[in-house]
Design a protein around this nucleic acid. Sequence first.
RNA 1: GCCCCCGUAGCUCAAUGGACAGAGCACCGGACUUCUAAUCCGUAGGUUGUGCGUUCGAGUCGCACCGGGGGCGCCA
Length: 588
Amino acid sequence: MFELERQKVEENIIVFCHQEDLPEIQVAWNSIPFSGHWGISTSLFALAAAEVRQKQIKINVPQRAAELAEKLVDFLGIPQGFEKVEAVKGYVNLYFSQNEYTRRVLEAVFTEKENFGRHQPYNQQVMVEFSQPNTHKAFHVGHLRSAILGDTLSRILEFGGYDVVRANYPGDMGLHVIKWLWCYKNFHAGEKPEEDITRWMGSIYAEASKRLEENPELEAEIRELYTLWDQGDPEIVNLWQETRQWSLNGFYEMYETLNIHFDRYYFNSQMEKPGKAIVQTLIDKGIAQDERPDGAVIVKIDEVLGLNKDKYRVLVVLRSDGTALYATEDLALSKQKFEDYPDLSKSYYVVDVRQSLHFQQIFKTMEILGYDWAKKCEHIPYELVSLPGNVVMASREGTVVLLEDLISEATNRAYEVVKQKNPDLSEEKNREIARAIGIGAIKYPMQARENAKIVTFDWESALDFNGQAAPYIQYAYVRAGSILRKAGVEKMDWDIPVYDMAPIEVELIDMISRFPQEVERAANEMRTIQITTYAYELAKRFNEFYNQCPVLKVEEPVRSARLRLVFATRQAVKNSLALLGITAPEAM
RNA sequence: GCCCCCGUAGCUCAAUGGACAGAGCACCGGACUUCUAAUCCGUAGGUUGUGCGUUCGAGUCGCACCGGGGGCGCCA
């Protein structure tokens, strides 16, 4: 937002370097900490250090940096657009002309509204594959992370200037499905799920696992059933198709509740045949080794590449009995994506970190096969959701928290609070708001964490609506809206009157102005935490402002000015919540 | 054995290689006749796992070690 002024200063710094016979240096800008003022800052340590190196002189670098800062401040004077410049401990701080920049920030927000912060289009298409739920299994809180992370990353990339294709890849075939079918056929034949589909599907799967654990000799029946399916036995295939649909319907419902949408569904089962064809090509080209029937079909990737160390190791691409593996299908899927969307500049896979090696193997194998797009494939790993005591959520062990339980618990709790705080609301409104709050409270902590860090789920903190959480941010939005409603202003322009701003007002404007760069960074680094932190900080500034600065009851022109500030804040809060897939309610 | 990730306040977590390492929770003490107190203000809490190194400057980069988690030929 202030690039021109900054650039001008940078140019002047280079002139200064020439004039003082100093080495030229890349200028890096920071914000000014602890100041309560608003501006930008750069340090002169690097310059001083470069000078010492260049001239082979022995002087103390921090001291020299402080000297240079003083000199530079004299040289710069007060550049256009700034109102104060000072040298502090080797740093040069430039303070913005507050009224000028405030107008600029407000103009941007008022004209761009819901697009404030949006990056200009790169005209590049990217695909984000996420969620990948297994049919015939429960959908638990552990599965939520990929769904939410992928959804928010898609939103961030889209807002960050990319054309995003959101892809889902349900695991609708595999041993787990066969186990389920086996259990259903033998013990639940004819039953149909009424409601709570995924819970019911999950319970059958858990039962299957238990029965097999108790009687391992039954594994033979599973193999048999798998072979039947593989051969296209109509009875099994029909049963599979019917039950698979039950699961998918349950998922669609869940995504609707979570407000998560997909542009494209790929199914595991569809990738079997093309996967096997790729395996055959690998064998024909001598890249894969066919050790059947005694062994499997494998690709010794390191050997093929001529590496002497264990980097990519060995990828098994087909079982010894000729049935497909996850890897078989992943080879085909990677290719299918580029056939469907040949212009993709990136193909992202949001999948947990345990599959890092697997994806490196898949991408490298396709690269060896000669597909250049393989270099555009990238795995975005994230850590798991575990239970206290480092217990992994596993459907088999029954150590799961079902998503539907979490959602109903969170929304019910929110419902009670809304009823208490806002008794005049209609039942319908109350339900709607409770949903926004409950779902937001679930989504926020999943994203407010570094991808590489484990999320530990416990009921208490999951249902804690206080502190750094979604309801706090939503509340700031509601408060801002409430002020605007009561002010009853129909139309407002951004032309803010000049007045003496309180420090918190300056900080608030500063926060608003930072939104576009936070979006850009989140998109570059694929980090949702950038936005969760930003939204919280913004809400925090607003709550402080709310407490310190009366709006409706203050005299003009401050009243008009603050109303504009409130409007701009509300917009920025709304835009950042939208990126997180969290609804901004009108009342709480 | 090889590879990857994590280690920061009592707990859960932040911190583009830069100024005084910050939030939330929990604890204690304040502020509602006010634009919604789901808020705000204050007190307290630290050898950033350990040791070397790179750098003007390291929680951040490199190496080694310690502790925890994960991955390594037919699970997904």
